[in-house]
Structures are given as structure tokens and as C-alpha cells.
Amino acid sequence: MITVRDATAQDAQALAEIYNYAVQHTTAIWNETCVDVQNRAQWISERQKAGFPVLVACAAQGVVVGYASYGPWRLFEGYRYTVEHSVYVRANCQKRGIGRLLMQALIERAKAAGLHVMVAGIEAENAPSCRLHAQLGFVQAGTMRQVGTKFGRWLDLSFMTLNLE
């Protein structure tokens, strides 16, 4: 059974492992630099102090198998009711509904916070993520061609949005 809870500093090691795997092996994150435990602990703290959730999905014995969060879409005041989210699941735990569970919890938090729109920025060839978002009610908002690069190739960024009201 998978449970979802708020992250703590003790989850930083697991978050760093999940994040670093995505950095090293996927185009889900367009960074090429891995992070350490201190970086993730600081990230958790900063997000939570700013009023944004950081959620973790835990399997048996409390093992963290995924995480999700949202933060500002853009920093201008006019965007204050719009957030962009991220969700990551351990590679060996994918396709088990964990991403969906995290996303559903994150959407509920955003609604409870009185937010209006949630934005997803997804590498355009990431069909499983696009499919999950569509199943949760996100709609295609556009694709920006070749705006990023990783592993020696240009990447397209698809945007999907969910109206939370």
C-alpha cells in the first residue's frame, strides 16, 4: 500500500536519489548536474516556508518511492494563482499508479490553496507523462520546439494546463 505525506528533511536522501537518476538517465529534468542531500533538504525547507507542498509517496516500511511539488509559474504578481508542478517516481516503481496518486494529492492541495491553474511542462516525447496528465484533466496548451537540449539532442517542451476551479 502506498501512502502520501508531507516531506521532511529526513526524506532528502531519497529525493536526491530520485532526482539524480532523472538527471543522469532521462529527459524529464533538463539539468545535467546532480544534487546532494543538503541541496534537497534546503529545497524542501524553502518550498515549505514559501507555502508550497512537497509530498512524498511511501511504500512498505516508509520507503520513499516518489515525490511531487509545485511552485510559482512565474514571479510576476499577475501569475500568483498559477503554479507549475513536478512529479517524479523511482524508475523501478513506475507504472504502478504512484505518479497518479501524487498528482491527485497535489491537485487537491492546490485547490485547497485557492489556486486557479496548474501548469505541466513536459518533454514532448514523454508519452506516459502526457497521457497521465490528460487522464487527470490537463489539456494541451502548446509546444515550444527545440527550446532545450540534453544528451546531445534538441528537446521540445509541451505545456499542459489544468483549471482547478
Score class of each variant (00 low, 15 high):
residue 50 A to G: 06
residue 28 A to E: 08
residue 77 E to Q: 15
residue 106 L to W: 06
residue 135 Q to G: 11
residue 2 I to R: 02
residue 7 A to C: 05
residue 117 V to W: 03
residue 130 C to S: 13
residue 4 V to R: 03
residue 121 G to I: 06
residue 95 K to E: 13
residue 4 V to S: 05
residue 40 R to N: 03
residue 30 W to L: 13
residue 31 N to G: 14
residue 109 R to K: 15
residue 116 H to L: 12
residue 141 A to W: 12
residue 94 Q to S: 01
residue 117 V to R: 15
residue 110 A to F: 06
residue 37 V to F: 02
residue 111 K to P: 04
residue 79 Y to F: 14
residue 60 A to K: 11
residue 164 L to E: 06
residue 77 E to D: 13
residue 33 T to N: 11
residue 62 G to T: 08
residue 87 V to N: 02
residue 94 Q to W: 00
residue 75 L to P: 05
residue 151 F to E: 05
residue 153 R to D: 02
residue 53 P to W: 06
residue 59 A to N: 11
residue 44 I to K: 00
residue 117 V to G: 03
residue 24 Q to P: 01
residue 104 Q to N: 12
residue 87 V to P: 01
residue 69 S to K: 01
residue 157 L to V: 09
residue 158 S to C: 14
residue 144 M to C: 08
residue 114 G to Y: 11
residue 146 Q to K: 14
residue 9 A to C: 09
residue 131 R to A: 15
residue 125 E to C: 13
residue 87 V to W: 00
residue 48 Q to V: 04
residue 31 N to S: 15
residue 155 L to A: 06
residue 63 V to T: 14
residue 68 A to Y: 05
residue 142 G to D: 09
residue 82 T to Y: 04
residue 35 V to Y: 09
residue 7 A to F: 02
residue 159 F to C: 03
residue 31 N to Y: 07
residue 95 K to Y: 07
residue 27 T to K: 00
residue 32 E to S: 14
residue 47 R to G: 02
residue 115 L to G: 11
residue 42 Q to K: 13
residue 39 N to C: 10
residue 126 N to W: 01
residue 103 M to S: 11
residue 60 A to H: 13
residue 17 E to N: 12
residue 17 E to W: 00
residue 129 S to Q: 02
residue 11 D to P: 04
residue 161 T to D: 13
residue 63 V to S: 11
residue 116 H to I: 08
residue 18 I to F: 06
residue 42 Q to V: 11
residue 32 E to G: 14
residue 84 E to V: 08
residue 69 S to Y: 09
residue 58 C to Y: 03
residue 98 I to L: 03
residue 12 A to N: 02
residue 132 L to M: 11
residue 107 I to G: 04
residue 102 L to S: 05
residue 84 E to Q: 11
residue 165 E to H: 13
residue 93 C to R: 11
residue 40 R to F: 01
residue 70 Y to R: 04
residue 35 V to F: 06
residue 31 N to K: 13
residue 165 E to C: 10
residue 59 A to R: 07
residue 120 A to I: 04
residue 134 A to T: 15
residue 19 Y to F: 12
residue 112 A to G: 11
residue 118 M to A: 10
residue 72 P to I: 07
residue 142 G to N: 07
residue 85 H to S: 09
residue 11 D to K: 04
residue 120 A to K: 02
residue 48 Q to R: 12
residue 21 Y to C: 02
residue 113 A to S: 15
residue 159 F to S: 06
residue 94 Q to F: 01
residue 63 V to E: 13
residue 118 M to S: 08
residue 14 A to M: 07
residue 40 R to D: 00
residue 11 D to I: 03
residue 87 V to H: 01
residue 149 T to Q: 15
residue 4 V to Y: 04
residue 25 H to Y: 13
residue 85 H to K: 08
residue 153 R to K: 14
residue 41 A to L: 08
residue 86 S to D: 07
residue 108 E to A: 13
residue 27 T to R: 00
residue 44 I to D: 00
residue 109 R to A: 14
residue 112 A to K: 14
residue 161 T to V: 15
residue 48 Q to H: 01
residue 5 R to H: 04
residue 2 I to P: 10
residue 136 L to H: 08
residue 43 W to E: 03
residue 118 M to L: 12
residue 76 F to N: 05
residue 83 V to P: 00
